[in-house]
């Protein structure tokens, strides 16, 4: 009954698929919205399908479709895409030490597949370490790509029969998915502080119509979590030296 290499890979691929499945299903309304909106805004089928195929983004696709339909300048469209997509710099940085050492093939694939959803499934210390976890990540991220494409194509096909879906509240499906991903990860005070600061600032910055609202709120929230963590560690160190009464000199220095 030894676990062969092939079997182990199959099991990890399966786990990657199953872990991503709820997220793949949750983006159905959003994908159909993107696909149908493109058709309703007079994109050709090719253009509408190239969006999920090569741009592979959620809100950036949606915003760009409206901008292109309104004849915005190329510079505006590209700048907006850059701003919306800039949060991914943080994901790349966070995973840099793990991914930069990978062979080119894996690095380019995982770089392309590095969405919010894949990043959310990558918080484990050991993610991307070893071939089996790479199989897991590529299947999870790859299945998300395939499903995203599928939902978009469905939207493109149904597009001309569907009403305008932009005000139906389909974005709630995105919100509830991220609630399901974030809330269970709040396991200590620093993460709780991070979440509360991100929540408050993201709303304030958005109401101020600050262009870098998301990234600015996230950066300040991350720093707040980091400071909380340092503060707790310092307090712990002080308590430890007090309790153990190691030596007067150590105690005096605190």
């Amino acid at each position: 009954m030894a676990l062969t290499k092939k079997k182990a890979r199959w099991l990890m691929a399966r786990k990657g698929f199953l872990d991503m499945l709820p997220l793949n299903l949750a983006v159905l309304p959003w994908g159909i919205l993107c696909g149908s909106l493109a058709v309703q805004r007079d994109f050709s089928a090719l253009e509408a399908i190239l969006m999920p195929l090569i741009v592979f983004a959620g809100s950036a696709q949606l915003v760009a479709i409206e901008l292109i339909a309104n004849n915005a300048s190329l510079a505006t469209i590209l700048f907006t895409t850059f701003i919306i997509s800039s949060r991914h710099f943080l994901y790349g940085l966070a995973l840099r030490d793990k991914l930069k050492v990978l062979p080119t093939k894996w690095r380019y694939s995982l770089g392309f597949l590095l969405t919010d959803e894949l990043f959310a499934l990558s918080s484990n210390n050991k993610s991307f370490v070893g071939q089996l976890r790479l199989v897991y990540a590529v299947v999870a991220g790859g299945s998300f790509y395939v499903f995203w494409l599928l939902w978009n194509v469905a939207g493109v096909i149904a597009g001309s029969y569907l009403p305008d879906l932009t005000h139906l509240g389909l974005d709630f499906a995105i919100a509830v998915t991220f609630i399901a991903l974030v809330i269970p990860t709040i396991i200590n005070l620093p993460i709780l502080v991070t979440v509360i600061v991100a929540a408050l600032l993201s709303v304030v910055f958005k109401l101020m119509q600050f262009e870098l609202d998301l990234v600015a709120a996230a950066l300040i929230a991350m720093y707040s979590g980091y400071l909380t963590d340092r503060f707790l560690h310092k307090k712990n160190d002080v308590n430890n030296t007090d309790n153990h009464k190691i030596s007067p000199s150590v105690k005096d220095s605190t």
Binding site: R87, L90, Y91, L93, A94, R96, D97, D116, F119, A120, S123, D171, F172, I174, A175, F178, I179, L181, V182, T185, I186, P190, I191, T194, V195, V197, A198, A199, L201, S202, V203, K206, L207, D213, L214, A217, A218, L219, A221, M222, Y223, G225, Y226, D229
Partner: peptide
């Protein structure tokens, strides 16, 4: 780019921070 231990710790908060900054405005605005 080289990341020190402090930077790595800071970045460990990126998932809750970014994902929260995405979903909360959808709810409240």
């Amino acid at each position: 780019v080289r990341l020190g231990a402090k930077m790595a710790k800071l970045l460990s908060f990126s998932a809750p921070a970014v994902l929260t900054a995405i979903w909360v405005p959808i709810i409240f605005i």
